[in-house]
Structure formats: structure tokens, C-alpha cells
Amino acid sequence: MVLTSLHSEPDAATNPPSLAAPLTLDGYREFFGSGPWPPLLNSLSASVGSTVLVLLLAVPAAYALSVKKVEKWSDVLFFFLSTKMLPVVAGLLPIYLVAQYAGLLDNISFLVVLYTSMNLPIAVWLMRSFLAEVPGEILEAAALDGAGLPTILRRVVAPVALPGIAATSLICFIFSWNELLFARVLTGVVAGTAPVYLTGFVTSQGLFLAKVCAAATVVSLPVLVAGFAAQDKLVQGLSLGAVK
């Protein structure tokens, strides 16, 4: 994709691909000249906002399901998991009607709430497995020192479970950044996200491959940068508790 983005449109359209074709930045010039910043900022706002909300809700929920277990906690976990069994397209029409009735079509705040609800179940499952590895002695010591639940979550649980929080954050960010179906149906000119913007390159004149690859490369960069920056925490978090 990166190599094709650096070719001219005639060279990018050859079959088989012309790997030794001259390199050019014309695809990137055309992409940045088409005004991609609003969709990119919309994607960033929706992804970061929903990820923050997911963490604020998932960490206390996972704490209640792993450390201070509530009654029938396994039923609660199954309920969270069952919400992911519904095909996304099956919920598209009801959600559209709700957004239309509430006047929230083409609204980035509605996407934030929607992405939060979509990512919360998997975040709770992930964070529960991470928090289950937190030593109970640390929590008991904090409680004996007079720390309340908010203090324990902020100053004891969060630092110990930081790898798990980083892994969960990155996964939720990627899911939100890549989401297309709901963004395509529920947004328009104002709140359109980067994946929706990419679909606009499929025109009646055809598919301009070099320009599409340049746009897809730019849209992929935030996820790649975030993954590279958090790779040590991601590997540590996803392998936490795998080996006793």
C-alpha cells in the first residue's frame, strides 16, 4: 500500500504491479489538498473520547467482578459477552431511528456514546483478567491505611494494572478508529470520520488507486504510532496471567 501510494496513477494501475516504477508524492499532495483534516479530527475525537469513557466505566466494573466480586458475577460477565453476539447490522436501524428522534444524526457526541457502548463489554472482560492478577494483600493494606474505593482504584489498582489498561486502551482505540458501518450511516458532512472519508474516493470516474493508498496510509498512521509507542505495555498486558 505504501509503495503504491508513491507511484503515479498510471503506474499504480498496472497489472502486474510495476515495483520499479518512478516514485512520486503526487498522491499525498492530492490527498492533503482535498481537505482531510475534519474527518481525521472527528475520528480522533470519537476514538479518544470513547476510549477514555470506556476506561472510566470498565475499571470499576472489572474491580467489582474480580476483586470485590458481586453476587452472580459470572452471569454479569455472560450478559456483557452476549451483547457482542448481536450482529452489528441488526442494530443499525433501531439506533438510526433513536438518533433521528433525538436529533443526534451527524453528531460526533452520539458516536462517542455509541463506540463506548460497543467497546465496553470487551474492555470489562479484558480488565477483569488483568485485575484478577493484582495481589489481594496490596488492596488489604491500602484499606487498612484508610484508603477508600476511589483512592484504591486511582493509586493502587491503576499503577499495578497499567499494562492491562494500556492494552485495553489500544484495542478500544483501534476498534473505534476503524469503525465504518455506523459512522457511514449516522454521520454526514459535519461528523464524518476518516473511514467514511476514504469511501468517498470510490467515484463514478473509477478508483484512483495511488490516491486511495496515500489516504489509507495516512489514516493508518495514528494506530501504527500508538501501537509502536505502547508495544511493550501491549505485549505485557496481553500476556498478563497467561503463565503462572
Score class of each variant (00 low, 15 high):
Val2His: 09
His7Thr: 09
His7Asn: 02
Asn15Ala: 03
Ser18Ile: 07
Ser18Tyr: 11
Ala21Ser: 06
Pro22Met: 00
Pro22Cys: 00
Asp26Gly: 00
Glu30Gly: 05
Phe32Trp: 15
Gly35Phe: 03
Asn42Met: 01
Ala46Lys: 06
Val48Cys: 00
Ala64Arg: 10
Lys68Glu: 10
Glu71Ala: 00
Lys72Ile: 09
Trp73Ala: 08
Asp75Val: 12
Thr83Phe: 04
Thr83His: 06
Met85Trp: 10
Leu86Thr: 14
Val89Thr: 13
Gly91Asn: 12
Leu92Trp: 15
Val98Leu: 07
Ala102Cys: 02
Ala102Phe: 10
Asp106Cys: 02
Val112Thr: 05
Tyr115Ile: 09
Asn119Gln: 12
Val124His: 06
Trp125Ile: 11
Met127Val: 12
Ser129His: 08
Leu139Glu: 15
Glu140Asp: 15
Ala143Met: 11
Asp145Thr: 07
Ala147Pro: 09
Ile152Val: 14
Leu153Ser: 03
Ala158Asp: 01
Val160His: 09
Leu162Arg: 15
Pro163Met: 01
Gly164Tyr: 05
Ile165Val: 14
Thr168Phe: 09
Thr168Ile: 08
Ser169Met: 02
Phe175Asp: 09
Ser176Trp: 09
Leu180Tyr: 15
Leu181Val: 15
Leu186Val: 10
Gly192Leu: 04
Leu198Arg: 13
Gly200Arg: 15
Thr203Lys: 13
Gln205Gly: 03
Gly206Leu: 03
Leu207Asp: 00
Phe208His: 11
Leu209Cys: 01
Ala216Asp: 10
Thr217Asn: 03
Ala226Ser: 06
Ala226Asp: 04
Phe228Gly: 12
Ala229Gly: 10
Asp232Leu: 02
Gln236Ser: 12
Gln236His: 11
Gly241Lys: 09
